[in-house]
Simulated scan of single mutants.
Amino acid sequence: MAEIAREQPGDHHEVEALYDLCFAPGREALSSYRLRDGVPPEADLCLVARGRGGETAGAIRTWPVRIGGAAALLLGPIAVHPTRQGEGLGGLMIFEVLERARALGHPRMMLVGDAPYYGRFGFVRLDGVIMPPPTNPERVLGIALREGAWDGIGGEVTRAPREEAD
Rank of each mutant, 00 (worst) to 15 (best):
D37S: 14
L74Q: 05
L47C: 05
P132M: 09
V48Q: 04
D37Y: 10
H106W: 14
M93T: 03
G53W: 09
P133M: 08
H13K: 05
A115R: 13
Y118A: 04
R27K: 07
L89F: 10
L35A: 11
C22F: 01
A103P: 08
Q8H: 11
R84F: 14
L18W: 07
E14R: 12
E87C: 12
A43D: 15
D37P: 02
V80K: 01
Y33T: 13
A17V: 08
T62P: 12
P77Y: 01
L45F: 09
L45H: 06
L45Y: 02
E99F: 03
P77G: 00
V39F: 11
A115K: 10
S31Q: 07
L74I: 14
L73N: 07
I4K: 10
L104W: 05
E99H: 15
Y117M: 05
I78S: 01
D20Y: 00
C46I: 10
E99A: 15
R50Q: 03
Y33W: 14
E138F: 04
T62N: 09
I67K: 06
G128H: 07
I130R: 12
L21I: 04
Q85S: 03
E42A: 15
Y33G: 04
P41T: 13
L104E: 14
R120K: 15
V112P: 00
Q85C: 06
L104K: 09
D44N: 09
M93Y: 01
R52A: 14
G91Q: 05
E55K: 01
P133R: 05
G113D: 04
E14P: 02
A101F: 04
P25G: 04
A79Q: 00
A17F: 05
P132D: 06
P64C: 07
A5H: 14
P25K: 03
L126N: 04
L30D: 01
G86H: 02
V48M: 05
P132N: 03
V124S: 11
H12Q: 07
Q8P: 10
F23T: 06
R34C: 14
D114G: 04
E87Y: 03
P64Q: 12
L75W: 06
A79L: 02
P77V: 01
P25E: 13
G53E: 15
D11G: 05
R120D: 10
M93G: 05
D11I: 03
P41I: 09
R6V: 15
G69D: 02
A5F: 11
D44Y: 06
E96K: 11
P77N: 07
D44G: 14
D37Q: 15
G91V: 11
P132R: 03
A2H: 11
G105L: 13
L21M: 13
A101C: 11
T62H: 11
R125N: 10
T135S: 06
P64G: 13
H12K: 02
Y118S: 07
R27E: 02
A115N: 02
V39C: 12
W63E: 11
A59V: 03
Q85M: 07
R120P: 13
R100C: 11
Y118P: 12
L98Y: 10
I67N: 07
L35W: 14
V65D: 13
P41S: 15
M131K: 01
M109G: 13
R100A: 11
F95H: 15
E42V: 15
